[in-house]
């Protein structure tokens, strides 16, 4: 992507729209990724509450997986899971 010159961007570092943090994929420098054991998960949503990057995907009241675009691999979800259905595994790149 060609970057714009100083004459072509708004002054003062202003970005003329909201929610731009979403475009910045922060999940590209982790070592571990969370992996779920579907059989053990009870959909209690504790991981959803604790995830600092809002990476727990939920659909119709079910925990459906992880948003790996933003997951930094911190392991909090695995740590708080009451049934220990999440394990942290080394990511293969």
């Amino acid at each position: 992507m060609t970057k714009k010159g100083w004459k072509d961007i708004p002054i003062g570092g202003l970005i003329e729209k909201g929610g731009t943090a979403k475009e910045y994929k922060t999940g590209d420098w982790r070592t571990f990724i969370p992996v779920k054991d579907e059989a053990k998960c009870i959909d209690c949503m504790i991981c959803w509450v604790y995830c600092p990057d809002s990476c727990i995907k939920v659909k119709d009241g079910k925990m459906t997986g992880f948003d790996l675009d933003y997951c930094k691999g911190c392991g909090i979800c695995a740590s708080v899971c009451p049934v220990k259905c999440i394990s942290m595994e080394k990511e293969k790149k």
Binding site: G13, I15, K17, G18, T20
Partner: peptide
């Protein structure tokens, strides 16, 4: 007209 102010730059 939402805007973002003071972003990382």
């Amino acid at each position: 007209k939402p805007v973002t102010v003071g972003p990382l730059d």
